[in-house]
């Protein structure tokens, strides 16, 4: 297995806040790697730094051994990096199909029209509701449908690496299940490597091979996901158990 994505001592600051403090991470080809942590821990920032929406203060990011600092943001898509950001961010006044077509925009040089059509069909099989609504404006879709559209838009360019930010956010449990089934299929049928940022730790650990836990911008725990799934420290990282214990000990 070769390294697909490597983060080396990445530091990101917003104004005076350090959002990422010296974060290092590795993702091997064909893997699903989960990044877990409470709100505000810096998970989304990490994905944004990979897709160059936020600049690095220091550190390096390599993709297939290539230093990404030399690549302009809009060319990442053509290299096979696809980012499905938090909050879906579908283009609300464009139709579902236009949204999907735009997903292929960055890969238009490496993909033939036929391949794009084939991918589109596959996405419609994956999420049949998108086919039903293909001529509807994306803004009129429900939250779950928008998430499916965002996923589909991120997949249509046949990416090598998928950066997936909180795909289950704000969705009803039944839809969460559906989205995670889709993620499994994407990985199994297309062999896409996935960097998955999630709040839903149990779900994410069930899918991922390896996981990192981010706490206030730092990686606090890492390991194979089967190990972390039974680790009490994971629960503590989310629910702040340490403070509670401290408090009860004091009383």
């Amino acid at each position: 297995m070769s390294e697909l994505l490597v983060l080396e001592n990445v530091v990101v600051t917003y104004g005076a806040v350090q959002a990422l403090k010296d974060v290092s991470l590795k993702l091997y080809e064909g893997q699903i790697v989960a990044v877990l942590g409470a709100n505000g821990a810096g998970k989304s920032t990490m994905l944004k730094s990979i897709s160059k929406i936020v600049p690095l203060q220091s550190g390096k990011i390599y993709y297939k051994g290539k230093d990404l600092s030399l690549v302009p943001a809009h060319e990442l898509a053509s290299l096979g990096i696809s980012h499905v950001p938090e909050g879906r961010r579908v283009f609300s006044t464009l139709t579902v199909e236009e949204n999907l077509n735009l997903g292929a925009y960055g890969g238009r040089e490496r993909l033939s029209q036929k391949e794009v059509e084939a991918e589109k069909q596959w996405i419609f099989e994956l999420f049949p509701v998108l086919l039903e609504r293909k001529n509807q404006l994306a803004g009129t879709l429900s939250g779950g449908e928008q998430q499916m559209l965002a996923l589909g838009r991120g997949l249509i360019s046949k990416p090598t690496l998928l950066l997936l930010d909180e795909p289950s956010l704000g969705l009803a449990p039944i839809l969460v299940k559906e989205i995670f089934n889709a993620i499994r299929k994407i990985h199994e049928e297309r062999g896409v490597s996935i960097l998955l940022v999630e709040q839903n730790a149990k779900k994410a650990l069930a899918e991922a091979h390896y996981a990192y836990i981010l706490e206030t911008g730092k990686i606090s725990i890492e390991g194979p996901s089967s190990q972390l799934a039974n680790d009490d420290r994971v629960k503590a990282a989310y629910l702040g158990g340490s403070a509670l214990e401290k408090k009860f000990e004091n009383k």
Binding site: A77, H83, S92, G106
Partner: peptide, 17 residues
Amino acid sequence: AAIRATALDREMATILG
């Protein structure tokens, strides 16, 4: 569509290439 997408959300348009 890329023009319209840029007007709606520059950042997302950039992500898509």
